[in-house]
C-alpha cells in the first residue's frame, strides 16, 4: 500500500516567500529586506509595511542591490534580496560571485518568477539556467521549495543557516501538499512515496507533477518512489544512492535546462556511486516563449505525460 499525498488547494510560492519574510520580520531583528522595484511581485509588501526601517528599496539596479546586501552582512544583518530569478542570477552573476559567494557573505538571494511559468512575458524573463549558475558557485546553497507551505518554511530556515543561499520560487498557483507544520531541513531529501520500480527526483512544483504521475502509474502496477529534492546544493547524495539502489533507475524533473540543473547534480552522484539509467524531464537547450504557464509546461515537455513517458523509458532501459 502506497502513501497518499493530498493537495489542499492551489497557492503561489512567491506568496509563501512573502509570508515567510513577514514572519521573519517579527521574529528576527537582524533580517533586512532589499528589493529592486518588484515589491508587489515578490510579495514583500507586508515586511515593507511592518518594518520600513529594515526595508530597502534599491530601484532598478540589481548589481547595486547585491553589493549593498553583501555590505550589510558586515555588522551582522541578514539581508534578503528580492527580484525575478533572471535578475537575481544571470544579470548579477559576477556581483554574486565576488561580493557574496567568494566573500562568504550571509546574503539570501530570493528569486521569484523562475522558469517558463512566468508565462506571457516570454523568454527575456524566463530564466532556465539559474540553478546551474548558482550551484556552480562555491559556498552557495541552492534551494527550490515545492509548494507554498514549503516556501514559507524554507524562507524561515535560511535565516538560521549561516552562508549565502539562493532560494528559487515562482509566480503561478500550484498545488499545496506539504503539511503546514512541517519543518524544513536544508539538505535533507523528502521521500514522499515509497516505490520499487523507479525513483522520481524532482524539485519545485514538478514534485506535485511527479506525484500525479505516480498516482496514474499505480493503476498500471508501476510503483514510483517520489522524492522532493528541495535542496539542490548541498545535494542529499545518500538519499539519491539509497533510492537508486532500491529501484534501479531514476527520472529527474525540474523547470530548468537539462544543462546544469537538478538532473545533472543527480547524474554526478549516480555515475560515481551507482550507475543506472536516468531520464531527464527538463528543457532541452532552448529558450522559452510567451504563453499561458501550464500550456508552456506541456509544450516544453514538463507535464505529467512527460514524466510518465520518462518513467517508462527509464524502466525499459533498466531491463535491457
Amino acid at each position: 500500500m502506497m502513501n497518499e499525498i493530498i493537495s489542499t488547494g492551489n497557492k503561489d510560492t512567491r506568496s509563501g516567500f512573502g509570508e515567510g519574510l513577514r514572519l521573519l520580520g517579527e521574529k528576527n531583528p537582524n533580517v533586512v529586506a532589499l528589493c529592486a522595484d518588484l515589491t508587489g511581485s515578490l510579495k514583500m509588501d507586508a515586511f515593507q509595511k511592518n518594518h520600513p526601517d529594515r526595508f530597502f528599496q534599491i530601484g532598478i539596479a540589481e548589481a547595486n542591490m547585491m553589493g549593498i546586501a553583501a555590505g550589510m552582512t558586515i555588522g551582522g544583518k541578514i539581508p534578503f534580496t528580492g527580484t525575478f530569478a533572471n535578475f537575481s542570477t544571470s544579470r548579477v552573476y559576477d556581483q554574486i560571485r565576488q561580493s557574496i559567494a567568494y566573500s562568504k557573505k550571509n546574503v539570501k538571494i530570493c528569486a521569484s518568477h523562475a522558469g517558463l511559468t512566468l508565462g506571457e512575458d516570454g523568454a527575456t524573463h524566463q530564466v532556465l539556467e539559474d540553478i546551474g549558475m548558482m550551484r556552480m558557485l562555491p559556498n552557495l546553497t541552492v534551494i527550490v521549495p515545492a509548494d507554498y507551505n514549503q516556501t514559507v518554511q524554507a524562507t524561515l530556515a535560511i535565516a538560521e543557516w549561516e552562508g549565502p543561499v539562493y532560494l528559487r520560487f515562482g509566480r503561478p498557483s500550484v498545488p499545496v501538499f506539504v503539511p503546514e507544520n512541517a519543518t524544513f531541513q536544508i539538505g535533507k531529501a523528502e521521500v514522499l512515496t515509497s516505490g520499487q520500480d523507479v525513483s522520481v527526483i524532482a524539485c519545485g512544483h514538478l514534485v506535485w507533477t511527479a506525484i500525479e504521475a505516480q498516482k496514474v502509474l499505480r493503476s498500471e502496477d508501476i510503483s514510483v518512489e517520489v522524492i522532493n529534492m528541495h535542496t539542490i546544493k548541498p545535494l542529499d547524495e545518500a538519499a539519491v544512492i539509497a533510492s537508486a539502489q532500491k529501484t534501479g533507475c531514476v527520472v529527474t524533473a525540474e523547470e530548468h535546462m537539462r544543462n546544469g540543473g537538478l538532473g545533472d547534480a543527480v547524474a554526478q552522484v549516480l555515475m560515481q556511486h551507482h550507475p543506472c539509467p536516468q531520464e531527464y524531464v527538463a528543457v532541452n537547450d532552448r529558450f522559452g516563449e510567451s504563453g499561458p504557464p501550464m500550456e508552456l509546461m506541456k509544450k516544453y515537455g514538463l507535464g505529467v505525460e512527460d514524466i510518465i513517458t520518462a518513467i517508462k523509458r527509464a524502466i525499459k532501459r533498466k531491463k535491457l
Partner: peptide, 27 residues
C-alpha cells in the same frame, strides 16, 4: 579585509551596505 575585490565597480555598493548596517546599529 572584509570583502573580495578585483572585478571592478563593486566596492562602492558594498560600502553603502556596510554604512547602512552601521546606521541601523546606531554606530
Amino acid at each position: 579585509i572584509r570583502m573580495a575585490s578585483g572585478s571592478l565597480g563593486q566596492g562602492l555598493s558594498v560600502a553603502i551596505g556596510a554604512a547602512l548596517s552601521k546606521k541601523l546599529a546606531g554606530d
